[in-house]
Amino acid sequence: MENTHNFFMPKTNLIGVGSIKDLPNELLGWKLNKALIVTDKNMIKLGYLEKIEVMLKNLFITYDIFDGILHPNSTVSFVEEGLTYFDKLFRRAYNLVISIGGGSVHDCAKAIAAVAANGGSITDYEGYNKITQPAVPHIAINTTAGSASEITMFAIITDESRKVKMSIAAPNILPFISVNDPMFMATMPQDITASSGIDVVSHSVESYISTEASPMTDTLALGAIELVFNYLRRAYVNGNDLEAREQMMYANVMAGMAFNNAGLGYIHAMAHQLGGSHNQGHGNYNGILLPYVLQFNAESVPEKRLVNLAEAMGEKADSKPEAVEKIGMAIKKLCSDIKIPSGLKMMGIEKNELETFSQNALKDIAALTNPRKGTLQDIISIYEAAM
């Protein structure tokens, strides 16, 4: 009986303090002449763009800058605006896309690179493996420890017309090179540190109990959880704590490697719907939903796996019920310590929206690898419990 677990990630991953200095060496043999930089105005203000501009100039690579990522959830309109830079009227022939920022910037860059090479609209590619041609080569320079978009084949793009976050997944949108240098993460504000950090936990938990989990992804997921529980509070309290930033960076990469290859579950399927409608921090939704989704999934997850999750969070449990309870308490305590809202109502979610959210959540590709299959009423009940 076949049981394949193929493993996808970028060809080259530059990781660690000072790793950005290795990027020019990676580009020397590429024979590039023009790049499109995708970023946001905050990255420009912080001086991160300038560092990359110096590198490109030294390599005689010309570039244009698209800084139209205006909020933390990339949209179809952002992608379409970025694609205007590829308009033949301007005779721009980019052979490289560089994203500088967090998950929203990387997702938008992936979408731009994919449509530039495949044609059509990004809405044509919602779902799994619909991008059949390789995207324009993409380098993702990461500045947050959370989404892991810089190393994954996923892009989350909000379709404003439907108020739905589209999940787009295909190996052809994997960046060629990822850069995770904690020096670029020291300026992350507290709220982004918190939201992106709890996102790492949700990636790890979901990949560990996914129907596509493997020994490789298990090891990465548990290791990432342990790092988050040891270092996220420190990074939140003191953004200049470089050790904490570096360890959270490793947690982000490890969790990204895990879910990129094992998949996710209902936490993300449900959170995507909230973000598509309310346009708030994705990680906050995940942190709120996590204990309630885990409680729903528990009956389909072996006891040993739940005990292992609790242990990675620093909790000892001797039974499945005890593990579920202690995991829930550990997550809620961490969320409280880093000021994640305690309920969906605090984030403006209304009860009359839950049925529509639930219908769309069941269609989200993240739901495919959830360990327990739920009904529409099951999903509504989870949302209600998390209010």
Results as ranks from 00 to 15, higher is better:
Ser167Met: 09
Pro72Phe: 10
Thr123Phe: 05
Thr75Tyr: 00
Gly146Arg: 02
Cys108Glu: 09
Glu325Gly: 07
Ile65Asp: 11
Glu80Pro: 02
Met313Leu: 08
Leu368Trp: 09
Glu206Ala: 03
Asp364Leu: 06
Thr62Pro: 06
Ala235Arg: 11
Glu212Arg: 15
Cys108Leu: 12
Lys11Phe: 13
Ser336Asp: 15
Asn360Val: 07
Asp181His: 07
Gly146Asn: 02
Ile192Gln: 03
Ser381Asp: 15
Lys363Glu: 10
Val253Ala: 07
Ala317His: 07
Asn252Cys: 13
Val97Gln: 03
Val38Thr: 06
Leu232Cys: 04
Thr75Trp: 00
Leu227Pro: 03
Asp218Arg: 13
Gly348Trp: 01
Ser358Met: 11
Glu81Pro: 06
Val307Glu: 07
Thr12Tyr: 12
Ser161Lys: 14
His272Met: 06
Gln280Ser: 11
Thr375Pro: 04
Glu160Cys: 04
Ala310Asp: 02
Val97Ile: 14
Gly18Lys: 03
Ala93Leu: 12
Pro302Ile: 10
Ile65Arg: 06
Lys51Glu: 13
Pro321Ile: 04
Thr62Ile: 09
Arg372Glu: 06
Glu50His: 13
Lys45Glu: 13
Pro137Tyr: 07
Tyr48Gly: 09
Asp364Asn: 01
Val228Lys: 02
Gly256Pro: 00
Tyr285His: 03
Ser196Gly: 07
Gly82Lys: 01
Ile151Arg: 03
Ile349Ala: 12
Glu355Asp: 06
Arg162Thr: 13
Ile69His: 01
Gly265Met: 05
Pro72Lys: 01
Met248Pro: 00
Glu26Ala: 12
Asn230Phe: 06
Gly47Val: 06
Lys34His: 13
Ile331Pro: 05
Asn42Glu: 14
Phe78Glu: 09
Ser319Gly: 11
Met188Gln: 01
Glu2His: 11
Leu306His: 11
Met347Glu: 11
Glu150Tyr: 05
Asn240Tyr: 13
Phe8Tyr: 15
Thr356Asp: 12
Lys363His: 10
Val76Asn: 01
Leu56His: 02
Asn230Ser: 10
Gly328Trp: 08
Glu160Leu: 05
Lys304Val: 13
Ala361Glu: 00
Phe154Ala: 14
Ser381Asn: 15
Ile382His: 05
Phe60Glu: 15
Gly68Pro: 05
Asn25Thr: 12
Tyr292Ala: 08
Gly29Trp: 09
Asp318Arg: 12
Gly68Phe: 00
Leu264Arg: 02
Gln377Val: 07
Ala170Leu: 09
Met55Asp: 04
Lys130Arg: 14
Lys45Asn: 03
